[in-house]
Write a protein that binds this DNA or RNA. Structure first.
Lengths: 124, 124
DNA sequence: TAGTTAAGACTACAATTGTAATCATTATTT
DNA sequence: AAATAATGATTACAATTGTAGTCTTAACTA
């Protein structure tokens, strides 16, 4: 898959919200959270087209963009990369950090338990 | 904390293995895994000194480097940053990826269960 | 129809990054 | 003492990134 910068990822998020999306729509979505300069967004869109992260269809004067990979696919790849680089590819050292840091709520813990139950049902 | 590139992080890893460490020692450690050019490593060391990621003490001609923050501190910060950026700061969507992807072993699952038990003992 | 907009293309430009080579200086070896 | 080697400092240089500005062209407006 393509290498995406953090800023490019933010723009991609706006596209994943719904596509094909025009530059205008994308800019509006982005501005819901924080101010983005139109030119900046256009540049980022351009770059992502060039690096095959998104595609576009031309409708009259304007383009409608779509992602070339799913959000899940990308976030999973990035997560694995981080685990690889800092935890020898293992999940529990990362989880351990959070568990021990007082950052988790009872709900978070319950979600984790559900996931584990799911795994145990599916596997051994 | 300081912004560290992925490559700089690899060099830092070698320092975390034991410090203060001379450039030579660091280069040797790095070469255990893959070939690194001496000049490249020296450049990275220099940059990290400048960005206050590591310090050094001069002993004769050479420097002995030490990290200015702990490995745990850094990996946790990076993990949180990734969760923040791609999972609204929540842990379970990330764990969910792994649980569902057939990437976990029974041992991994047991480790997670232990962590959860630990949390439950400490909290609620 | 002439002027103004709006789209995207192209250009800009400094900071960071990866990857070294060269320079200056101090040890060390003949 | 002179030559050589080893250290870190400085310089190099292209690619990527963040952040826009300018240019070209098509479309809308007065």
């Amino acid at each position: 898959m393509t290498e995406i910068s953090k800023t490019e990822f933010e723009v991609l998020e706006a596209i994943w919200q719904g596509h094909p999306a025009s530059a205008q729509q994308i800019i509006e979505r982005l501005n819901d959270t924080k101010p983005w300069h139109e030119k900046t967004v256009k540049t980022l869109l351009n770059r992502m087209v060039k690096k095959d992260a998104i595609s576009f269809e031309k409708v009259q004067r304007s383009y409608f963009y779509s992602p070339l990979f799913a959000r899940d696919e990308y976030t999973f790849k990035e997560s694995k990369s981080l685990l690889e680089r800092m935890f020898s590819g293992r999940l529990s050292p990362l989880v351990s950090h959070f568990v021990k840091s007082d950052e988790l709520t009872k709900d978070d813990i319950n979600e984790l338990k559900d996931l584990i139950n799911q795994w145990e049902k599916d596997n051994g």
